[in-house]
Design a protein around this nucleic acid. Structure first.
Lengths: 207, 207, 207, 207
DNA sequence: GATGAATGAGTCTTCATTCAT
DNA sequence: CATGAATGAAGACTCATTCAT
C-alpha cells in the first residue's frame, strides 16, 4: 500500500492530457523546439494552468521520459530464459517493431533526447537500463555457449535490434519518402524483412 | 569551366569556420536549439559578422545540409556492381561504420533533421537519394536472382545498414553509457559484430 | 447581432491606449520610423505587453488605418443630395477643415502612408473609397447639368478639397513656420479663406 | 570668384550619382525607411564608398534638401510683378503643376520631410522661404488693392496652390487609384481643372 | 483550480558606421 | 579612390515564467 497523493479525477485527467499533448509536441520538435503554448493548446488548457500541474517545461519533459522508460523496456523483460533462443529473440524483434508502429511518438521522443546527448535521461540509462541489458546479454551468452544461438557479441546484438526496429519510427520521414508508402505499409514490409534477416543471422551453424 | 563566386581567402576561411562551428552546434542541439551566439563564438566571430557571410541562421543550416549530402552518399556509390556481392555489401557496411567514427557530428546532424520530419531536406531525400537507393536495390536484386546473395528485401537491407551503423554515432550517448567504453572503443567492437552479423545474414544458402 | 470578441475592461482600455499612442508615433515618424519602444512607453506599457494585445507592429498599424478610414470618409457621406449644391460643398470643405483641426494626427497618418505609395492601404483606397468618390462625382455632375454649380471636373474638385484642407494638418510645420502663428490660428484664417475661395470657384455664372 | 573645392570629374559624377540615387530612395521610403544599402546599390557604388563622399546618411539627406530648395522656389520667383495678375498666378499654378509632373520625387521628398514636422529643414523654411512668400503676398495684396485680383488672403492663396498642385505628386498613389489612370494622365486632367478653377476664384468681380 | 495580464531574458536580424588594405 | 571585412547599437519578436484575482 503506497501513500497516494490526493488527486481528484479532474487533476488526473488534466495531467494525462498535458503529458499526451507534450508527447506529441516534444517528439515533433525536440525539447527546445517545443513551446508551452503548443502543449497548452494541444491539451486544451491555458498556459498558466499547465504550469499549475507541472512546475516547468522541463518538469513536463522529465515526467514524460521517466514515465515512459518502464514501458519502453517491457519487451526486453518479456524474453523468456526458458524459451527457444532464436524464437525468443525473433519475438523480441517483433515486439520492438510493433512498438515502432504503435508508439512512434515515444520512440522519437527518446531518439531526440539521445541524439542530443541524453542530457536529461543519462542517469536512468546508466542505471536500470544498463543493468537490464547486461542481464539479457548474459542470457544470450549462455544460449551461445549451449550452441543454440549463433555466436555474436550479445550487447551489440541488442543494439542492432534497437537500431533496426526503431529506425522505422525515428526515421520514418526518410523511409516513407524513399519507399513512397503510405501509413503503416513500410512496417508491414519491415516485419517480413526483419524476421528473415534475424533468423539467418541468429541460427547457429549446424554442427 | 564553371563560374566561380569571387571568394577571397579570408572569405573562404571564415565561411568554413562558420560551417564547422555550425556543424558542432546544430548536431548537438538541433536547428531550434542552436543559437547564432553559440555558432559565432565557436567560430571566433561576432554574431553580425556571421550574418555577413550567411544571410540567416537557416541559410547556414541548409548550406551545411546540402554541402554534406553528397559526401554522405559516397559510400553507397562506391559499391562495385562487378564485385563479389557479399564482400561489396560488407565493404559498404564498413565504410558506413567508418563514417560514424570519423563524422559523428554529420551523422547526428542528419539524424536530428530526419527525426523531426526532415522539414528542410525532404526534397533532397525524395530526389537524388531515392534514386540512388532504388538503383542500388536493383543491383542487389540481380545478385539475389543469380543466387549470389541471400534473398531479402533490398530496400530494407539498405535501411538496416543505415540503422545499425549510424546508431553508433547517433545514439553513442546510450551505447557508451551501457558499454562503459571510452572514445572509439564501441565502434571497434561494432566492427567485428557487424562483419559477422551481416556475413551470416547475407551468405546465400548452399544449394 | 454580431459575435463579440470577449473583451474585458482592461483589454479594451489597453488596446485603446496602444492605438492612441501608436497614432501619435506613427503620424510623427511614419511606419518605419516608429518603434515599438516609443509606442509602448507612450502607452505606459512594456514592449512585450504591447505585443500581447497586437500580434506585431504592422498589426497595430493596419488596425489603426482601417479603424480610422470609416471616420475619415464620414464628411463625404454627409453631403446631402437634396441640399443647395454650393452650400453642401462649402459645408463639406468646412467639415474637412474641422477634421484637420481636431484630428491632425489622423491626417498625417494617412499622408505618411499615401506619400510612400500607400503600400498597406491601397486595397481599401481602390475599393470603398473609389466607389464613394465616384458616387459623389456623379452627384456633382448632376448639379452642374442643372446649372446649380460651376462646371468643373468633379473628381478633381474633390481632390482639391482634400488637398487644401488636409494641407493645414499635414504641412502644418511649414504653414505655421511661414505664418508665425500659434496653435490653431492658421486654421481660423484658412476657414475664411477657403469659404471665400470655394464660393467664388463654385458659384455658377449667372445666365 | 569663389574658392573651388578641388573636385575631379569622377568625384563630381559620383556625388551626383549618389544624390540622384538618394532622391529616389528617400522619396520612396522617407529618411528612416531608406537604407544606405539601397542608396549605394542604386548609385552603383559600395556602401563605404558612398560614405567617402558624404559623411553620413544624414549628410546625404540634408545635402539633397538644401540643394533642391532653390530649384523648388524658382517658380515662385518667376512671377512678374509687372504682369497681368490673374495670368501671372495661373502661370505659377501651371509651373508648379509641371514640377509635380517632372519632379515628383523631389515633391515627395519635401512632403515626407514636412509631414514629419520638417525636423531637418525647418531653419530653411523659416528663413528664405518665409521671406519669399511674404514678399509675394505683398505683391498679391497690391494687385487686390488695385482691383485686379479677387480679394483673398494672399498667404493662404499660396498655400492652396502648393496644396492643389503638389497633391498630384505627393498623393499620386491615391489619385491614380481612384481615377484608374496610367502615367501622367491624371496631371493632364488636373491642368484643365486647375486653370478653370483658379481663373474663377481669382478674377475680380466686375465693378 | 483556472486564467487574463504582464514581463525579463533572450534570439534573430538590420543597419549606419568604422577599420584595414 | 575603392572595397572587403567587421561591429555596436538597436529593433522586432518569442517564450518560459510570474502575478493577481
Amino acid at each position: 500500500m503506497t501513500i497516494q497523493q490526493p488527486q481528484t479525477r479532474i487533476q488526473k485527467k488534466n495531467r494525462e492530457a498535458i503529458l499526451d499533448a507534450a508527447l506529441g509536441v516534444f517528439s515533433d520538435h525536440g525539447f527546445r523546439g517545443a513551446t508551452l503554448d503548443q502543449i497548452a493548446s494541444a491539451a486544451g488548457l491555458s498556459k498558466p494552468n499547465v504550469l499549475y500541474y507541472f512546475a516547468s517545461k522541463e518538469a513536463i519533459y522529465t515526467a514524460l521520459l521517466s514515465g515512459l522508460l518502464e514501458t519502453w523496456l517491457d519487451p526486453l523483460r518479456a524474453i523468456d530464459p526458458d524459451g527457444e533462443p532464436v524464437d525468443e529473440i525473433l519475438g523480441y524483434v517483433m515486439r520492438k517493431l510493433q512498438m515502432s508502429r504503435e508508439y512512434p511518438r515515444e520512440s522519437r521522443l527518446f531518439a531526440n533526447e539521445i541524439v542530443q546527448g541524453a542530457p536529461r535521461i543519462l542517469d536512468q540509462i546508466e542505471g536500470p537500463l544498463k543493468e537490464l541489458v547486461d542481464r539479457t546479454a548474459g542470457l544470450f551468452l549462455g544460449w551461445m555457449d549451449d550452441g543454440r544461438l549463433a555466436r555474436l557479441d550479445p550487447h551489440h546484438l541488442v543494439f542492432s535490434i534497437w537500431a533496426t526496429t526503431q529506425h522505422y519510427a525515428d526515421f520514418s520521414a526518410q523511409v516513407t519518402s524513399i519507399l513512397q508508402t503510405e501509413g503503416d505499409a513500410h512496417i508491414d514490409q519491415a516485419e517480413t524483412f526483419l524476421r528473415d534477416f534475424y533468423r539467418r543471422a541468429l541460427l547457429p551453424d549446424s554442427p
